[in-house]
Design a protein around this nucleic acid. Sequence first.
DNA 1: ATGTCACCTGGTAGGTGA
Length: 254
Amino acid sequence: MKLATWNVNSLAVRLPQLLEWLAAHPVDAIALQETKLTDDKFPHAELLAAGWQAQWHGQRTYNGVALLSRMPATAVVKNIPGFDDEQARVISGTLGDLRVVGAYFPNGQAPGTDKFAYKMRWMEALRDWLAHELSEHPRLVLMGDFNVAPEDRDVYDPVAWAGQIHCTDEERAHFRALQDIGLVDAFRLFEQPPKSWTWWDYRNLAFRKNQGLRIDHILVSPALRQKVSACEIDKAPRRNERPSDHAPVELTLR
DNA sequence: ATGTCACCTGGTAGGTGA
């Protein structure tokens, strides 16, 4: 069983690259973020023609998430139940005996802003909801663009980024709160190359200089931890012409 | 290098968000 997550930064622009990547990577499901499409514009016919079932939750201009899978997802839930939110950021579904939660965490802009406060509220609501979900779905995967670099080793220049958005103590505390309910960062279950990032700014020749952050993650529940056999970042799509600023992350389960 | 990209409005440029 293989799962993946990818912030495509506009599915309208990136659909050909997504289909190309999926054709070369035999995943069973992929969570997408920043589709930036209203639901009526979602390319479900094109995806179906390529063999992909899809569930989606979009909005105009910003955000938007989707869950593509070879088998149809059941018990689909959009956003965080009980958390009133106009932004489309979460989509969940069941695949076999696996509960999959795909999420696009708020960016947060900068500490002290309203958007940062929203990010903190949102992460707290996600954690509270997932604590309950885990009791009903022991085999659960949370994956997506977390917009949090959990540790200094997830940042190309931790000194320059200290206290900056994605790297603040508050964001990292909320990330640890997800770990406190049992979720495990699958990437860190394995020895990984140093300077492993999932996002590189479009500006400043950041990708060429490998100046990035690891902010896209796949977290697994305790029941799945022993089943994880690999977790890898695929940098290759970041070298495409007109790439997303994020790379996909892939998980292999026994 | 405040260096790009995507999307919107309302156009052939400027603002917002990331």
